[in-house]
Design a protein around this nucleic acid. Structure first.
Length: 111
DNA sequence: TGGGTGACCATAG
DNA sequence: ACTATGGCCACCC
């Protein structure tokens, strides 16, 4: 049985609005597993196998760095997808990360 | 069974 | 700003 954790991660990622981004740690925290931010990354690795589209490009590390770009079809696709949505990216890093940040804890009104 | 690894994070210097 | 270190835990030899 697939971990619910896995499904919950995808569920949240799909909720990220266009032009916004969030971090692995924020998602982990929203799921009550702040200790396992690495698990979020592992879940994302499987995201390609999901039948429903998962906007993985909207998930970066807490530094606003596109650490997962090498897992996309091409090394530049992640950056291009973000720029299409209006997110500026320079040197694999999101400009004005704070401004684009989307916190699931706040937006989803979790306690 | 156990060591190595990772789309991470926090802290220290 | 940068490196080093430790914690985290599922997964793969």
């Amino acid at each position: 049985m697939n971990t619910d954790f896995n499904d919950n991660v995808f569920k949240i990622v799909r909720l990220i609005p266009k032009g916004r981004v969030t971090s692995y740690g924020a998602i982990a925290k929203a799921l009550g597993a702040a200790k396992s931010s690495r698990m979020v990354g592992r879940a994302m690795n499987h995201s390609h196998a999901e039948q429903e589209y998962v906007p993985a490009h909207r998930v970066v590390n807490r530094n606003g760095l596109l650490t997962g770009k090498h897992h996309f079809k091409t090394p530049t696709s992640m950056q291009e997808l973000l720029e299409i949505e209006g997110v500026e990216v320079k040197e694999d890093k999101i400009i004005n990360f704070k401004h684009h940040f989307w916190d699931p804890l706040i937006e989803l009104n979790i306690e």
